[in-house]
Computed example of a mutant assay.
Amino acid sequence: MFSLNRSHLQQIFNKLDKNGDGRVSIDELMWLLERTGIDTCRADELELLLGKTSLDFIDFLFFYDTIINIDGNKLEENQDSLIESDLHKAFEVFDSNGDGLISSEELQNALSRLGLWDEHSSSPDCKSIITAYDTNSDGFLDYEEFKDMMLFAKS
């Protein structure tokens, strides 16, 4: 997840600290959370949670770190879900006959349609690619084998 460095956080803190007293009130913090789209509780609940009516810069850093870690976990879960959905869609593109398996011919056709296959290149043929990821040795890629291939290629 995107995170800010201390300098950026100091700038944000200073902008939130409207009266310049070196503290950010619960209302100012609520305004920031609402503007950033972070689901929050009511101001009185946030105050109870923090045990304070305002935060100095150090408290603000701890609060930011906590929010990033909580929100980062949600973001990671959402990203995993999106990746899984995208992989299913990609699998359907490669599995042109819809039998749940990708043959070397289907792989070559899909790669050709995507402009990723050059028959004159010295790269491995599609049978070799299938063999490399075909863990059950049936000569095809099922969804899990395809997923492993795609995630390996990504890294």
Rank of each mutant, 00 (worst) to 15 (best):
Y143K: 15
N5H: 08
T53I: 00
T66N: 07
E47C: 11
A43N: 12
S103D: 05
S122P: 03
L114K: 15
G51Y: 05
D71E: 13
T53K: 05
S112A: 12
N97E: 03
A43Q: 14
S104F: 10
D71V: 13
G22R: 06
D21N: 13
E77V: 12
M1K: 10
K52I: 00
F63C: 14
D125L: 02
D134P: 08
G20I: 02
R42V: 00
G37P: 04
G100W: 03
L32H: 07
S104N: 08
Q10W: 09
D99P: 10
S155P: 07
L151A: 08
A90V: 09
D138P: 10
Q11D: 03
I130Y: 06
S112K: 15
K18H: 02
F57T: 01
D95F: 11
L9K: 11
N69C: 00
G72C: 08
L111K: 14
L116Y: 11
F2P: 00
E47Q: 13
H120R: 00
T66L: 09
I83K: 14
S85W: 10
D44T: 04
L61N: 03
D21K: 09
F57P: 01
K18R: 11
R42E: 04
Y64A: 06
L9D: 01
L49V: 09
D95S: 07
N73F: 11
Y143I: 12
N73A: 08
K147N: 06
E145K: 13
R23E: 01
